[in-house]
Nucleic acid binder design. Structure first.
Length: 889
RNA sequence: GCGGCGGUGGCGGAACGGUAGACGCGGAGGCCUCAAAAGCCUCUGUCCGCAAGGGCGUGUGGGUUCGACUCCCACCCGCCGCACCA
């Protein structure tokens, strides 16, 4: 046993230096271009290139444990793909614009660029210390003009296509961050997702991206991608598609048509009133100059200042005010009263609804509160415990009643389409689809972001900055503090500019873009990061995109992942891309918690990657984080668990060092005492072949293949062949274990089961350790080299070290090991003997035994006999390779 | 309310419808050592039993099956998303 100790602090920097000096993980685009378009749908084995991407970090302070996890997962995948023979693009960058750096600047006066750059330097250093296999030649940061120049270019493409537009709207405003927010950035409780302040509504003119144009495609194309079901579900919910009809209700007095969206046109005959949202622009117009005006004004101003939380509470009693107007129900000509009520939302549908109190719970509650008529138009009884004396509201299916001669008696589902057809013919409505998704508000009244490349001219209006004048650089300012307008507005010299169209005086847009715009296309830029002429060369993109495996946190399930999909579709429509979906497969990793709680500074339970790496080395940290449990689930950090992984890596290194030493002392020519003379030495095969071929089948293998019988096989569960077996048996046992591990790890990697993959390597190492006295150096070397090879993607440094000690070669240059079929097959196995489905005995059976032979073995098993005593056998189930089950009575 | 994901030893977790608890942690005992650390070995779901062996065990209750952690039905609990969405 070597006296030396596993020292990650000596090993890790040495290998990091090799990878850095040799630019090991860089890939060029030329190869990709030369091979032509890669078979996007081709089988895994034929794929020649692969794009493995983890979500880029927001550089703030130091990397945290979540970063360690996501890049450990991504690196394992990247290495696996490489060793399957693919050229792997595995880049890194920084989402470096954003509020935290700016808030820090407000507090300290340090320019956000300075703190951001410092943080980026820390991330870079740690990524190298973790040994992540990154192609550093493609590194980018979204705050660099060389990057945001193209963010601005994309904005202009969208602007030219009418997909970026400016409009005044009721928008979400965070009073603390002093900026508007996207709908997606407001938490369900009506607070700012970032700072927690209660979000207000303000009427402001803002920039939007027309993501709603893509609602249908964003929904449908979810079927084309390999994403976790829960993420797809979240996106589907967020898009919120509803099928129904748009129906026009006319206000005869004023001659105005009001379309409403309904999913239940079959209940149109039950519409007994009409309700508008407080924000509806016509509410005040309808009451202007009437005695109702004052009351309505008061109600409206109260309603729009209510917080989303107050207003959104479904339990809240219904409130509202009658407008003193009526509209005509198009199906029966009835005049029905119009109300304003806060339960109707301006942002969904048309901001006005037809109210059917007989068949809608909310309308029913309102009708009761305001004593409005409630009419049943569909027969049926609501579930127990709901509904009034008449069984209303009833929201289920049934036959139409109280409608008209044409539709009464008709099944409501049929009636639905029949009524829509009728409306269509009469010009009073049509089938319609409505979405919950809103357009994406991208302007922010903040400093640290990509400037929006627009100037305002008195004569020409909003004019795009010409492409050759990009980037519009972010100017330096004195004061970053938000004052309800962008800090950029204070940079007067920067703001004042000439109009690109008429040359006259103009002023620059002073808002910046939401940082989600920056991160909606970074994966494209990686493909062609050095391109100074264009955002990308479509030919280069064609080689790498779409991303084969994207990895990140679920927290981006809606925001980033929806925006990036939208960008791809829009840019594809504009002819800049030839694919629709950016991320073919997605993996979402779970959170690492401490003592069951999210790590946070305020809780004081933060485990910092740098402290773990300092103490145990990067390999232990990475390996533990993958071993802790299924990577898509949350997992709780345990220092003891990490100690266990550290012991495992120590043992691997120690055994490798020991075997390397033993190998030097005992050259292959003189194997010890005949025990394994029949086993040839490990072969070295050039790249493209099998990495380290296992010893070929020899007499040792055949000797072992002698079939056992029930009589001579051990019957006790704990009987161990290895203990009593000869040295050659042990060699074979170990080699088989190695091949088993190759097979197991290969399968586990395909399904992201890193925890069980590492467990399999642990098993192999346990076997090496257990048999180390009785097997040949060659067998030991093969088994340990296999362990190192399989472990390389999880613990690269120690694996590279061990492999080099054993084989004198670089493990990452070896192809992924292949398990040999014959080494996976067993000539005997443990046959499970059951009586009535209960385990009663285990016996050795020959692999090629016939069902009848297996039955006989089972009958002969001592403990089976005891349970058969005096019973009648009714059925015998034989599962070759597994078990025999005797059913008795 | 709608949708999604979960519930297995003291703990993290393994188990194509076929030996429940791999692997690791923790625990107990032992070896090595003057001693300790490190390392190594054995045991470790639970109850009965000296043992052989047996009973009970994967949230609850049913069902399908020779056989169910796994499939089906009805519940309970937890987490996540959406929700006065017409």
């Amino acid at each position: 046993m070597s006296e030396r100790k596993y020292d990650p602090h000596e090993i890790e920097p040495r290998w990091q230096a090799v990878w850095a000096d040799e630019h090991t993980w860089e890939v060029s685009n030329e190869g990709a271009l030369a091979t032509g378009a890669r078979g996007a749908s081709g089988p895994e084995s034929e794929q020649t290139s692969s794009y493995v991407l983890e979500m880029l970090p927001y550089p703030s302070g130091e990397p945290h444990i979540g970063h360690l996890k996501v890049y450990s997962v991504g690196d394992a995948i990247a290495h696996y793909h490489r060793r399957l023979g693919r050229r792997v693009l595995h880049p890194m960058g920084y989402d470096s614009f954003g509020l935290p750096a700016e808030n820090h600047a407000i507090k300290t006066g340090v320019h956000p660029r300075a703190s951001t750059d410092a943080s980026i330097a820390s991330f870079q250093r740690q990524f190298r210390e973790w040994g992540i296999s990154i192609d550093w030649s493609r590194e980018l940061a979204t705050h660099e003009p060389s990057y945001y120049r193209w963010t601005q270019w994309i904005f202009l493409q969208l602007f030219d296509a009418g997909l970026a537009y400016r409009k005044e709207a009721a928008v979400k405003w965070c009073p603390k961050d002093q900026t508007v927010l996207a709908n997606e950035q407001v938490s369900p409780d009506g607070t700012c997702e970032r700072c927690g302040a209660t979000v207000e509504v303000r009427q402001l003119e803002q920039w939007f991206l027309r993501i709603t144009d893509y609602a249908e495609r964003l929904l449908n194309d979810l079927n084309e991608i390999e994403w976790p079901e829960h993420v797809k579900t979240m996106q589907r919910n967020w898009i919120g598609r509803s099928e129904g009809a748009e129906v026009t209700f006319r206000c005869e007095e004023l001659g105005i048509d009001y379309p409403v969206f309904t999913t239940r046109p079959d209940t149109l005959f039950g519409a007994t009133f009409f309700v508008m949202a407080p924000e509806h622009p016509d509410v005040l117009r309808l009451v202007a100059g009437t005695e109702r005006e004052r009351e309505v004004r008061e109600y409206v101003s109260h309603a729009i200042t209510e917080s989303g939380e107050e207003r959104g509470n479904a339990e809240k009693p219904k409130t509202g005010v009658a407008l003193g107007r009526t509209v005509t129900n198009p199906v029966n000509g009835e005049q029905i009263p119009v109300y304003v009520a806060d339960y109707v939302l301006m942002e969904y549908g048309t901001g006005a609804i037809m109210a059917v109190p007989g068949h809608d719970e909310r309308d029913h509650a309102f009708a009761r509160a305001f004593e409005l008529p409630i009419r049943r138009v569909i027969e049926g009884t609501p579930p127990e415990g709901s509904g009034d004396e008449q069984g209303l509201p009833y929201t289920g299916d049934g036959s139409l009643v109280n409608s008209n001669a044409e539709f009464d008696g008709m099944d409501n589902r049929e009636a639905l389409s029949a009524i829509v057809s009728w409306l269509d013919r009469e010009g009073k409505g049509h089938a319609s689809v409505n979405y919950r998704l809103r357009d994406w508000l991208i302007s922010r009244q903040r400093y640290w972001g990509t400037p929006i490349p627009i100037v305002y001219c008195e004569d020409c209006g909003a004019v795009p900055v010409p492409e050759d004048q990009l980037p519009v650089r972010l100017p330096d300012v004195e004061d970053y503090a938000p004052k309800g307008r962008s800090p950029l507005a204070a940079a007067e010299e920067w703001v004042r500019t000439g109009c690109p169209e008429c040359g006259g005086e103009a002023r620059r847009e002073t808002d910046t873009m939401d940082t989600f715009v920056d991160s909606s296309w970074y994966f494209l830029r990686y493909c062609d990061a050095a391109n100074a002429e264009a955002a990308w060369d479509p030919a280069v993109l064609g080689e790498w995109m779409p991303v084969d495996q994207y990895i990140g946190g679920v927290e981006h399930a809606i925001l980033h992942l929806m925006y990036a999909r939208f960008f791809c579709k829009a840019l594809a429509d504009l002819g800049h891309l030839d694919f629709q979906e950016p991320f073919r497969a997605l993996f979402t990793q779970g959170m690492i918690t401490k003592d069951g709680a999210k790590m946070s500074k305020s809780r004081g339970n933060v485990v910092s990657p740098s402290s773990i790496v300092e103490r145990y080395g990067a390999d232990t940290a990475r390996c533990y984080i993958l071993f802790i449990g299924p990577p898509d689930q949350d997992a709780d950090w345990s220092d003891e668990g990490m100690e266990g992984v550290h012991r495992f890596l120590s043992r691997l290194w120690r055994l490798a060092a020991e075997v390397a030493e033993r190998g030097r002392e005992e050259p292959h020519a003189a194997p010890p005492a005949g025990s394994h003379a029949t086993l040839p030495r490990v072969e070295h095969v050039p790249p493209g072949g099998v990495a380290h071929a296992p010893p070929r089948t020899t007499s040792a293998f055949q000797e072992h293949a002698a079939p056992s019988t029930a009589e001579d096989a051990p019957t006790g569960a704990s009987a161990s062949r290895a203990r009593t077996g000869s040295a050659a048996d042990d060699d074979l046992t170990l080699l088989r274990k190695a091949h088993w591990a190759i097979d197991k790890v290969s399968g586990d990697l395909r399904r992201f089961a890193f925890n069980t993959a590492i467990a399999a390597v642990m098993e192999l190492l346990n076997e090496c350790s257990r048999l180390r006295e009785s097997v040949s150096v060659d067998s030991q070397r093969f088994a340990l080299a296999t362990a190192a090879s399989l472990l390389f993607g999880f613990a690269p440094h120690v694996s590279a070290e061990a492999y080099e000690l054993l084989m004198g070669e670089r493990v990452w240059e070896q192809p992924w090991p292949r398990a040999e079929e014959e080494m996976l097959e067993r000539d005997t196995y443990e046959l499970v003997c059951q009586v009535n489905g209960r385990l009663r005995d285990r016996v050795q059976a020959a692999s090629d035994a016939s069902p009848d032979e297996l039955k006989a073995l089972c009958h002969a098993a001592p403990n089976v006999r005891a349970h058969l005593d005096g019973k009648e056998i009714v059925k015998e189930i034989v599962v070759p390779g597994k078990l025999v089950n005797l059913v008795v009575r």
